[in-house]
């Protein structure tokens, strides 16, 4: 039997390993991305044809409820079929949008424009109302909820063959699975988990890695290690 890491795609093939997957200790981690054992799925469960059609079924319902103003994004309450309302974004979303535009300008070597969009991002970040329940437990729950949004969102992209959106969703899900595992692990292990070790972030996709040095390639988006940034403590 083969087991696949849902974060980076690493294959644990029992045929070429000494230990059956079930007998690996719970503390065992993915050799590539350090995702926990719980992020591995047996290969069969990932049968592509079945998964795609299931996801497509979900999507019908999911995209539909979004349009009908079910829940979630700002502008819900207003006319559901008005395309303009779909673009009503919260301050937190506008902050991320400005970060995206700043990055877009940076890639085009437009430094001044990039700096100005970053300033707008900072303004919108400061305009976000403080979170009500700011506990690690609440964050863990929210990340779990987010993971459940991916199949429906992915199907909405696949139905109209939006390859760009599908790509962003693949990275987004993997990165979020890693965040979710790390936050859950912190809840169990506390500060001991991070004592005497560094936290690294891939500046291309947001993948988080715990270790002395960053991985040679990002396990999610495959950029080289110099694209990783160390997260500094309080100065």
């Amino acid at each position: 039997m083969k087991y696949i890491c849902q974060v980076c795609g690493y294959v644990y093939d029992e045929a070429s390993e000494a230990c059956p997957f079930d007998q690996l200790p719970d503390s065992w981690q993915c050799p590539w991305c350090k995702a926990p054992k719980t992020q591995f799925k047996p290969e069969q469960a990932e049968a592509p044809a079945e998964e795609a059609s299931d996801a497509a079924d979900d999507a019908g319902a999911d995209a539909g409820s979004g349009l009908a103003g079910g829940s979630g994004f700002a502008g819900d309450a207003a006319g559901a079929d008005d395309a303009g309302d779909l673009k009503q974004l919260s301050p937190g979303q506008l902050a991320a949008l400005c970060t995206n535009l700043a990055r877009g300008c940076e890639k085009q070597y437009k430094e001044e424009e990039s700096k100005l969009f970053a300033e707008l991002a900072a303004y919108f970040t400061a305009a976000v109302p403080p979170a009500e329940d700011a506990s690690v437990e609440a964050l863990a729950k929210q990340l779990q909820d987010e993971i459940s949004l991916y199949p429906g969102t992915r199907a909405a992209a696949d139905i109209v063959r939006d390859r760009g959106a599908a790509r962003a969703l693949v990275w987004g899900e993997k990165v979020t699975r890693m965040l979710s595992s790390l936050v859950s692990r912190y809840l169990e292990e506390g500060e001991a988990m991070l004592a005497d070790t560094e936290i690294w972030i891939c500046t291309a996709c947001g993948f988080i890695y715990i270790g002395e040095t960053p991985p040679e390639l990002c396990p999610v988006c495959k950029v080289p290690s110099w694209k990783f940034e160390k997260i500094e403590g309080r100065r």
Binding site: G66, G72, G92, L139, Q142, L143, E146, T153, A168
Partner: peptide, 16 residues
């Protein structure tokens, strides 16, 4: 439909 679905996800991320 894609924008609507992506916006839902994006709103969730902004809250987190």
């Amino acid at each position: 439909t894609v924008v609507a679905a992506m916006n839902r996800l994006s709103a969730k991320k902004a809250d987190e």
